[in-house]
Design a protein around this nucleic acid. Structure first.
Length: 311
DNA sequence: CTCCGGGATC
DNA sequence: GATCCAGGAG
């Protein structure tokens, strides 16, 4: 008899699963529907606005994104508007949200949409994946939430539901293993290329389905120990205090506040003061210089003649 | 695989 | 103090 543990013994099909396909689908609609979150970026048909939400939500909690999304859309209402903005203006709007690279990537994605897609977003999966900062999850999210198209959308809440319901005793379950189940439960939506109103039945809508999955997953995590820890892709992250990441964020904040530009020496002095104030040794000029070069290389800063300015 | 932000929450 | 977060890129 097969052991219940180990990724190799994952149920290969529904027949071996702890729950039938119909049972799982019913449970998701029921549990997710009962805990529906009426978030501002839901049930909107603006693909750009959906993209902004998806990128903001990458590794970032819903409660934090709520405060940023509305403000960001007010300032950059369209992909063209974002493409026309300066990187520093975008980064300023992003401050406090975290993972500042996402802001640069999102602006570059808007640039690409303005240049190659007439200021709109493509529906095609591969064209979405070609956009900076858009991976499998974000692309599937845009397709489901903006275009109501079916697909495989796997992120932490979706993992939570499938791991909890279908792999309760398994460890290190890969997304590759979940994929067929996720694909097989997503409704197909209306016919490809179809026009007009969406199907009157919400249960045919991939958008409503994934909302239900997200809401059920988010709820589950408040009830049981995070099932996503049993994902093969789960990884703890190093602490933030005293990290290189923290120095990056400090340097970015510093330079954004100095549109006229700073010398590398001035950046080094500010960083030294910050570190010492935190009870840590001063990193010194060498570290600050490498930090500036790195951030400049990623497009955060412009450096000319030893002067560091916001990009 | 590691790196990337930053705050709420426990 | 740890833990987590609608992930993506190198």
């Amino acid at each position: 008899m097969a052991s219940a543990k180990g990724a190799a013994l994952a149920p290969p099909c529904w027949d071996d699963a702890t729950l039938s396909r119909a049972q799982l689908i019913e449970r998701v609609w029921s549990e997710g529907g009962a805990r529906y979150r009426d978030l501002p970026w839901r049930n909107i048909d603006d693909p750009y606005a959906v993209l902004v939400s998806e990128v903001m939500l990458q590794q970032t909690q819903v409660a934090r994104v709520e405060r940023y999304w509305t403000r960001f859309l007010g300032r950059f209402p369209t992909a063209d508007a974002l493409a026309s903005a300066s990187a520093s203006d975008v980064l300023e709007m992003w401050q406090g949200l975290g993972y500042n690279r996402r802001a640069l990537a999102l602006k570059r994605a808007a640039d690409a949409c303005a240049a190659h897609h007439g200021g709109t977003l493509p529906r095609d999966l591969d064209q979405l994946l070609a956009l900076p900062g858009v991976g499998p999850a974000t692309a599937a999210g845009v397709r489901a939430f903006a275009f109501q198209l079916p697909g495989v959308y796997i992120e932490t809440n979706v993992r939570t539901v499938f791991l909890h319901e279908l792999f309760p005793q398994h460890q290190k379950v890969a997304d590759r293993t979940l994929e067929p189940f996720v694909r097989d439960t997503c409704p197909l939506g209306r016919a490809v290329g179809g026009e007009g109103a969406a199907s009157p039945d919400v249960r045919d809508d991939p958008r409503a389905w994934y909302y239900a999955l997200l809401d059920y997953g988010a709820y589950l995590k408040s009830q049981v120990q995070n099932p996503s820890r049993r994902s093969a892709h789960y990884a703890r992250q190093s602490s933030f205090e005293g990290s290189h990441r923290q120095k990056r964020s400090f340097a970015l904040r510093l330079v954004l506040d100095a549109p006229e530009g700073l010398s590398v020496a001035e950046v080094a002095m500010a960083l030294d003061a910050f570190e010492q104030q935190q009870g840590r040794p001063a990193p010194g000029l060498d570290v600050a210089s490498k930090l500036v070069d790195q951030l400049a290389g990623e497009g955060f800063f412009l450096v000319d003649d030893g002067l560091v300015r916001p990009a």
